[in-house]
Nucleic acid binder design. Structure first.
Length: 369
DNA sequence: CCAAGTTATCCACACTGCT
DNA sequence: AGCAGTGTGGATAACTTGG
């Protein structure tokens, strides 16, 4: 990994891999010079700040046809932009290599298609399609947990695509070696490629994202309004986009200038912007561990209760923007450091217990739905 | 049932970023 | 400087485990 880092993220790496890539003229042939570069630049929606330069570099390397790191696995919490990056890679590939077949498929959809193919006795067609691809993008691989047939099929697909000098990009909640309920063959195949962590946008990336979202015509934002979002908003790219839409909606008719007062009132009255209620999270965790909701909020320290409580706290922390203080208050008025410790402990447990990770994934899915 | 080990919890203090 | 949020380390008591 040291070598990978040196190669892709070290001092030799230019500020923006995208710039270098485009400056070098990669893809010019098929995308048509200046115009093509511009078009390709527009296809890339993911905004990478310094914190995600390695992922960006990996993406551009993949598009440039570098085979050194194949497959590339992007992993990170939900909301960091994995799916966006997957879509970008797919769209850019199609623009660069219109004559080389590519596919973007969600992990769970890949499994469903395979089941259909088996039922309709068309597995050969399924294989011809996927194994003949020049580029395969699989989004949310972790949802294939426990689905061995699909994993086996995917493993052979990845091999086939790689053998014919194709590119494979995979997004996942966890790095390959921490996946629970996965075939060791697939895990080692994935681990042999390049594994890149994705993290939430930092200040620089947030600013760039904000600039893009407010660029839509009709609702001119004042500098002070932008400044306010910059100062007060801490969230994922998707949440930021939601905020901008909410502000436009509140502004009413187009052409009204958006000032800091309006933004402040939207920020103040955000109804938890899609984040589940603590009670809903606690109930889901309680059910997952077969304990009572009341137990989680009680003083009990029974092993099963403590584990379920820690999971609930960890979920609350990851799926909402609530502070340790708020979470602790809900769970029996516990100290905020208790919540902090519980989250750290859960993180450590998840790193070493595949079945627990499986449960976490399940609960997270359920609560986001 | 009891002693020993483990760890969930709380407290005190320190650090960071913002106003 | 003051505040909010967070991180870290130590002390204590609740709980688990082995005999």
């Amino acid at each position: 990994m040291t070598q990978d880092t040196e190669r892709l993220g070290g001092p030799g790496v230019p500020e923006s891999p995208a710039q270098t890539f485009l400056a070098a003229g990669a893809g010019r042939e098929r995308t048509g010079g200046e115009d093509g570069r511009h078009r390709l630049g527009q296809l890339i929606q993911f905004v990478a700040g310094p914190e995600n330069r390695l992922a960006e570099a990996a993406l551009w390397g993949l598009l440039a046809g570098e085979e050194d790191y194949n497959p590339i696995v992007l992993h990170g919490h939900s909301g960091v932009g994995k799916s966006q990056l997957a879509r970008d890679a797919y769209n850019a590939w199609k623009a660069l290599h219109p004559d080389r077949p590519a596919a973007l498929v969600a992990g769970i959809e890949f499994a469903r298609q395979l089941t259909d193919a088996i039922e309709t006795q068309s597995v050969e067609d399924f294989r011809d399609h996927y194994r003949g691809l020049a580029m395969l993008v699989v989004d949310d691989l972790h949802l294939l947990s426990g689905k061995t047939a699909a994993q086996e099929e995917l493993m052979h697909t990845v091999d086939a695509v790689a053998r014919s000098s194709g590119a494979v990009l995979i997004t996942c909640r966890w790095p390959p070696d921490q996946l629970g309920g996965f075939l060791s063959g697939l895990v080692s195949r994935l681990s042999a490629g390049l594994t890149v962590p994705l993290v939430p946008p930092g200040p620089e990336a947030r600013r760039a994202l904000l600039g893009r979202y407010v660029a839509a015509p009709g609702f001119p934002w004042s500098e002070a309004a932008l400044e306010l979002v910059d100062q007060r908003f801490r969230g994922t790219a998707a949440q930021l986009e939601g905020l901008v839409k909410q502000v436009a909606l509140t502004a009413g008719q187009p052409a009204a200038r958006i000032g800091p007062e309006l933004v402040a009132s939207v920020l103040d009255h955000r109804p938890g912007a899609g984040q589940p209620e603590l009670r809903v999270i606690a109930m889901a965790a309680a059910k997952g561990f077969s304990v009572r909701l009341g137990d989680l909020r009680s003083g009990s320290r029974r092993r099963a209760v403590v584990l379920a409580r820690a999971m609930a706290m960890y979920l609350a922390r990851n799926l909402s923007e609530r502070t340790f203080e708020e979470i602790g208050r809900y769970f029996g008025g516990r100290d905020r450091t208790t919540v902090s410790h519980a989250c750290q402990r859960m993180e450590a447990l998840l790193a070493q217990d595949p079945s627990l990770r499986q449960l976490y994934t399940q609960l997270e899915q359920q609560l986001r739905a």
